[in-house]
Design a protein around this nucleic acid. Structure first.
Length: 885
RNA sequence: GGGCGAAUAGCUCAGCUGGGAGAGCAUCGGCCUUACAAGCCGAGGGUCACAGGUUCGAGCCCUGUUUCGCCCACCA
């Protein structure tokens, strides 16, 4: 016997070979002129600086499963790939390069720096795209986009100008989040808060014209240099007499007023709050109410500036230490209390951010959010799992205006020009050469760039050619589904919703499927610093892409984090190997077989055939349903169970008799069924395991209607003969086999040893079923002499088991001793007795009988009857054994 | 401070609109049976976190408690 397949499955060459073939033949290509129904997904564009991590692997595996499945279902599928220019992250990478060369971006200048970034991108950017290919991602790579592409830049300009014209973009001078290391403003979302142990310093401010002190509590003593007032709660009797007076600000010598404002919490600290309007958001608001001056004591690097007097030039934490020391020396430090509070950090470099007063551009999100909320409320976009809707709404309802300007160089430059002559703004889709107000040529473009997420927000339509009314948009917008992790629900999903609705007048996607985050086996977030990162590429090397994908799919239950372990992946590698070997077996036995001759309805199918075909039909049904509902883990386990436990464990074993026998008709019949089941199974598995299924599918005999399994149709079970009665008959045969195996196993009968069996049936129908299945019983139960009948002659000493209406009697002679069988029976009886007790108690309950649905009652009555009958048989058998002892 | 989620076998997790607790791995026993030892056959293992409640019936629904995890938030 031979087959074209190697003995064990070796993924590497197979993966490389088929991926190349698919790509070279354009199988990933989407055709906008197709008349087929559309299915489209835009990839969450990974950062151009990115390397494939587990999050990407999961995210893209799920997308690929959907895309391959929908393609096979007859859809015209567009999976739009690309990368994100990742402003700050990418700029940081290139700045590090420059630093290594002893240079920096200011030394080489803006234009040269931008050139360097592009150079970096062409050399080492986008390696993640190659890595996605190793995963098997079937993106339409010919359409690959980059958020800094010309087309996408045009879209960005268009959106900026239109939002400006609609009054939804404005410039304002406010306290923003400033990163002193990146030297840029950040949106609220880009600031991460982490609780840290710190201190609360109690400082004494001398009250002018008295010998009293007003004690303020602060977490940031160095900012006292910029205090312009001290505030107390108007209800606070302790300080009522001080309101309107002044304190002398220590170290600085400035007199500042004591004011009353209800913002101050009497209970916190001392109840007196130093007001530092230029360095605290709340203080800023208080200052506005009381018309207080703003004093900024920090520069853009977080050092004290010239307003900080003698502390000028000191780094902020250095200044803090010095301020505290100086106050202490002057007896103005009352005490230091331990205190925990949340410090805002830059999400890119973890530097503590400063609230910093500056002029920035904002998007007014109110009106945009309103439509985005309504779209979800009205069901135009469905969030799956639905629990995330609440999070989405909560965030949308509390949205602050979005700060979109960044003081970095790498990104979409803000299309605004300032006139030196009339100081008006020119906001333009094209690069402006003159002021749109006075015509002056003396204009300067804004030096800032846009938040990276501004261009990402346009991704679903900018990648499809917008602002042109392209055929791609026509065919594929709105997209069918967005697959993403919840970590970017706010950053990205919410903003795409707003922009899509604003500019396309329709939601960007029908479904948003939110998947879990991947963690390590201990449930920790994977991170380089923790050293617990599992590299997807190593996993692919070691276990193969298919095993990896299957693992991810089977872990992708909704609403829970994924704890990934390599043990689990190894298990699915074994699964791939199992499929491989089952295929080898099938191919070995299909020599000279022509699948074109298969006509299932012309064959005299055995119960085993009916059973496996019916099981296949059920599997098809479940597979389609679970994929439709994004229940990837259920898809995986359905297919796993069918492949291993139905097809391999039973059907292949059952098939051997006919395959090795000398009845050509039986052989042909089994070949037809084997081929049918394997071929459809491969198609069912293909979305999850694209490589191995293609390799095997191509090795099948006969010719296919399509060149690749990718283009074959997804099974729908239409042509399968579903025969539940036949399947049930087979289940009885299987139960008998299991019962025989159980006794053999329990009594340690060597597997090689043949035994005799007597099957005493209650009905002639059962006899017929078992006679039809006699060969299976002999083969799988290793039974030699087999007698089947109603009220048949029974052996004197026998081990007894019961399967439905069949008593199974295995003559003990020479096999085991009576004591063994007695023990086994006692155990079995105890088990069945429990069932009898349970159901008789249940059915004795009048309320249960009165209230439970008839269907349940009937089921339970049947179960009780079965258990009682089984119990009687086993007891009788036990009595006999005891009598014989 | 608000919100969300989790707690089920030794481990990792499924468990649908409430109807006799499941899988994989691990463990134990037996097998190199002509697709597969990356395998085959069998077995053991659970007070479904705790306390109440609703119900004929609760892992599932309700209330409270405990322990973890995450997200959001301008109390110095």
């Amino acid at each position: 016997m031979e087959s074209n397949l190697n003995k064990g499955y070796e993924p590497h060459d197979v993966e490389r070979k088929w991926y190349r073939t698919w790509e070279a033949n354009g199988f990933f290509r989407a055709d906008e002129s197709s008349v087929k129904p559309h299915y489209s997904i835009v990839i969450p564009p990974p950062n151009v600086t990115g390397v494939l991590h587990m999050g990407h692997a999961l995210n893209n595996t799920l997308q690929d499963i959907l895309c391959r499945w929908k393609r096979m279902c007859g859809c015209e599928v567009l999976w739009m790939p690309g990368t994100d220019h990742a402003g700050i992250a990418t700029q940081n990478v290139v700045e590090k390069q420059l630093a290594a060369e002893g240079s920096d971006r200011h030394a080489i200048g803006r234009d040269a720096f931008i050139d360097r970034v592009w150079q970096w991108r062409s050399e080492s950017g986008g390696q993640i795209i190659q890595q996605l290919k190793r995963l098997g991602a079937s993106c339409d790579w010919e359409r690959e986009r980059f958020t800094m592409d010309e087309g996408l830049s045009k879209a960005v300009r268009e959106v900026f100008v239109r939002l400006y014209e609609d009054g939804l973009i404005y410039r304002d001078n406010r306290l923003i989040n400033w990163c002193p290391r990146c030297h840029t403003a950040l949106s609220d979302l880009e600031v991460e808060h982490e609780d840290k142990r710190g201190h609360l310093w109690h400082l004494r401010y001398p009250v002018v014209g008295s010998d009293r002190f007003l004690v303020v509590a602060t977490t940031r003593p160095e900012t006292m240099l910029a205090d312009t007032a001290v505030a107390v709660n108007p209800e606070d009797e302790r300080y009522a007499d001080l309101v309107g007076k002044k304190v002398l600000l220590p170290l600085v010598g400035r007199e500042i007023p004591i004011i009353a404002d209800s913002y101050v919490d009497k209970e916190f600290g001392t109840g007196a709050l130093k007001i530092t309007p230029a360095h605290d958001v709340n203080d800023f608001d208080v200052a506005k109410r009381h018309d207080l001056p703003l004093i900024n004591v920090l520069d853009t690097s977080g050092n004290i500036n010239e307003n900080g007097g003698s502390y000028c030039g000191q780094e902020r934490y250095e200044a803090r230490a010095n301020v505290v020391a100086d106050l202490e020396m002057q007896g103005l430090l009352e005490k230091i209390v331990d205190h925990q509070n949340a410090v805002g950090e830059c999400y890119r470099c973890r530097t503590a951010i400063e609230p910093y007063l500056s002029l920035q551009w904002y998007v007014k999100v109110g009106p945009l959010a309103e439509t985005a909320i309504k779209a979800v409320q009205d069901g135009h976009t469905r969030i799956v799992p639905q629990q995330w809707e609440k999070t989405y709404f909560d965030w949308m309802f509390n949205l602050q205006d979005w700060c979109i300007s960044r003081q970095i160089w790498w990104g979409h430059r803000i299309p605004v020009w300032y006139c030196e002559d009339c100081s008006e703004l020119t906001v333009s889709r094209e690069d402006a050469t003159s002021c749109s107000h006075c015509g002056s040529k003396d204009i300067q473009q804004d030096t800032d760039v846009l938040d990276t997420w501004f261009s990402s927000a346009l991704w679903p339509f900018s990648t499809m050619g917008w602002p042109e009314q392209s055929a791609t948009l026509e065919k594929f917008y709105p997209t069918s589904c967005l697959v993403t992790g919840f970590d970017i629900l706010f950053f990205w999903v919410a903003r795409m919703m707003m922009m899509g609705l604003k500019f396309m007048d329709d939601v960007p996607f029908r479904d948003v499927y939110i998947h879990a985050l991947v963690r390590d086996a201990q449930g920790q977030k994977m991170s380089k610093s923790k050293g617990n990162v599992i590299d997807p590429l190593h996993v692919i090397d070691e276990f193969g892409a298919d095993a990896f994908r299957f693992t991810l799919a089977s872990f992708a239950a909704m609403g829970r984090d994924i704890k990934l372990s390599t043990e689990r992946i190894a298990g699915y590698k074994a699964f791939a190997n199992k499929l491989w070997n089952a295929s080898r077996f099938t191919l070995m036995n299909l020599e000279g077989f022509d699948p074109a001759a298969i006509e299932l309805d012309q064959l005299e199918l055995s119960d085993a055939d009916r059973w496996i075909l019916t099981r296949l039909a059920e599997t098809i049904d479940q597979t389609r349903q679970t994929l439709e509902g994004y229940k990837f883990n259920e898809t995986a386990s359905t297919l796993y169970a069918f492949t291993w436990h139905s097809f391999c464990d039973w059907y292949i074993e059952l098939a051997k008799d006919a395959l090795y026998g000398d009845d050509p008709q039986a052989r042909h019949r089994v070949q037809c069924v084997l081929f049918t089941v394997l071929e459809q199974l491969l198609r069912l598995l293909h979305p999850i395991m694209p490589f191995i299924t293609e390799e095997i599918w191509q090795a099948l005999p006969g010719s296919r209607t399509s060149a690749s399994i990718m283009q074959a149709t997804y099974p729908d079970g239409a042509e399968l003969p579903i025969d539940r009665a036949g399947a049930e008959r087979m289940e009885l045969v299987m139960d008998v086999v299991r019962a025989i195996r159980n006794v053999r196993g329990e009594m340690d009968v060597p597997p090689g040893k043949q035994i005799a069996a007597v099957l005493d049936c209650k009905t002639a129908a059962a006899v017929a079923v078992l006679q039809a299945g006699a060969m299976a019983i002999r083969q799988l139960g290793k039974v030699g002499e087999l007698n089947i009948g109603v009220g048949i002659a029974r052996p004197e000493q026998a081990a007894t088991q019961v399967a439905g209406e069949v008593e199974i009697l295995l003559p003990l002679a020479g096999l085991v001793d009576l004591a063994e069988e007695e023990k086994r029976l006692e155990k079995e009886i105890a088990k069945v007795q429990k069932d009898v007790d349970l159901f008789s108690k249940k059915l004795a309950n009048e309320k249960f009988v009165a209230n439970a649905p008839a269907e349940i009652l009937e089921k339970d009555r049947g179960k009780l009857k079965d258990a009682e009958e089984k119990l009687a048989v086993l007891r009788e058998s036990l009595d006999k054994i005891r009598a014989l002892k």
